[in-house]
Each structure stands twice: as structure tokens, then as C-alpha cells.
Amino acid sequence: MKMAYVCNGSSTRAQLAASIAGEYFKDAEIVAVGSIEGEEADETAMKILEEDGISTEGLKLTNLFEMDFDMNYAIVVGCDEGGCPLVFADKVIEWDFIENPKGQDEAAYRKAKDQLKEEIKKFYMENFA
């Protein structure tokens, strides 16, 4: 199975979500997608995930311009300026209510992480458990 977690603006939410999803979807190919070319891993996001024991090893990052649209699932985890990005997959899901923690304090990152953990767990339990 191939999954993309997509974020308009900073890819921070996508990085959080892809790492969390890796805890549930062990055999899936998962990628974090942002709309900014050349964006690297968000150090604060990596720290917050590691505090929670969530592995960031093997996190794959890309951008909307290089995204493979041959995906089973594309889950949009944030829509900043310009609205939600247009993506294609067998199934597209939008969770546009998660605020972008980029540039905020660690509490904002933890809030986004906790929201994503809840949504990903619910998604997994409803569709794969």
C-alpha cells in the first residue's frame, strides 16, 4: 500500500503524520508531501515525535511537484494559504482542521501531533483493524 500525507505550506504536519502512520502501517510505503520545494525535516517536529517514542527513521519527504500520484491514499493534513492542495489517489481524505505548528512553540507541535495521532488511529481502526 502507498500513502501520502500532504500539507499545503510547510510540510511539518505531513512529517508528523507520516511518522505516526508508520507506527500503524508497518508494510506501507509512506511519504510526507509539502508544497515548498527543497524543504527539509523540521527539527522541532522530529524532537516532539522522538519524545513520544515515534520513529522518524526512514521518513521520506517530497513536494507536490514531485509527488507520485500512484497512491492508494492521499491524506491532506493541512491547508494554509490558497486552500487544500489538489492531489490524486485512489482515495483522498482531507483533515484540514489541524493548525500548522511551524514557527510556534513546542506546545503547538504537541497539539498537532496529538490531533494527528487521534485521527490516524481512528482511520486505521475504521478501515484496517
Results as ranks from 00 to 15, higher is better:
Glu23Gly: 01
Glu37Val: 09
Gly78Thr: 08
Ala107Arg: 13
Glu94Ser: 04
Glu118Ser: 08
Phe65Leu: 15
Asp90Trp: 06
Cys7Trp: 02
Ala18Cys: 09
Ser10Phe: 10
Leu61Ile: 08
Gly34Glu: 07
Ser11Leu: 01
Lys102Asn: 13
Glu43Lys: 09
Asp70Asn: 14
Cys79Lys: 10
Asp105Gln: 12
Ala112Arg: 05
Asp52Pro: 00
Leu16Lys: 11
Gly78Asn: 11
Ala74Phe: 07
Cys79Gly: 07
Lys91Pro: 01
Leu116Trp: 11
Ser55Phe: 09
Arg13Ser: 00
Leu61Ser: 07
Leu61Phe: 05
Ala4Thr: 03
Val31His: 07
Lys113Ala: 14
Lys121Thr: 09
Asp96Leu: 07
Ala112Val: 02
Ile75Gln: 06
Arg110Glu: 15
Gly53Glu: 07
Asp90His: 03
Gly9Cys: 07
Met67Ala: 09
Tyr5Ile: 03
Ser11Gly: 13
Thr62Pro: 03
Glu40Ala: 09
Gly34Val: 01
Pro101Trp: 12
Ala89Cys: 03
Asp105Met: 08
Lys102Gln: 15
Asn127Pro: 06
Pro85Gln: 06
Gly34Ser: 06
Glu51Phe: 02
Val31Glu: 07
Lys47His: 12
Val87Thr: 13
Thr44Gly: 02
Lys2Ser: 15
Ala112Tyr: 08
Lys117Ser: 03
Val33Ser: 02
Leu16Thr: 09
Ile36Glu: 14
Cys79Tyr: 09
Glu23Ser: 10
Ile54Arg: 04
Ile36Arg: 05
Glu81Asp: 14
Tyr109Glu: 13
Gln104Lys: 15
Ala18Thr: 07
Asp105Pro: 13
Gly53Tyr: 05
Glu40Tyr: 02
Leu64Phe: 05
Glu126Lys: 10
Phe128Ser: 12
Arg110Phe: 04
Ile93Trp: 05
Asn72Ala: 11
Asp52Ala: 12
Arg13Trp: 04
Ile20Met: 03
Ile98Asp: 11
Val33Asn: 00
Leu86Glu: 15
Asn100Met: 06
Met1His: 02
Asp90Ala: 09
Ala14Phe: 00
Glu29Trp: 06
Glu126Leu: 14
Ile98Asn: 12
Phe123His: 13
Asp68Lys: 11
Gly22Phe: 04
Ala45Leu: 06
Gly38Gln: 04
Glu23Ala: 14
Arg110Gly: 05
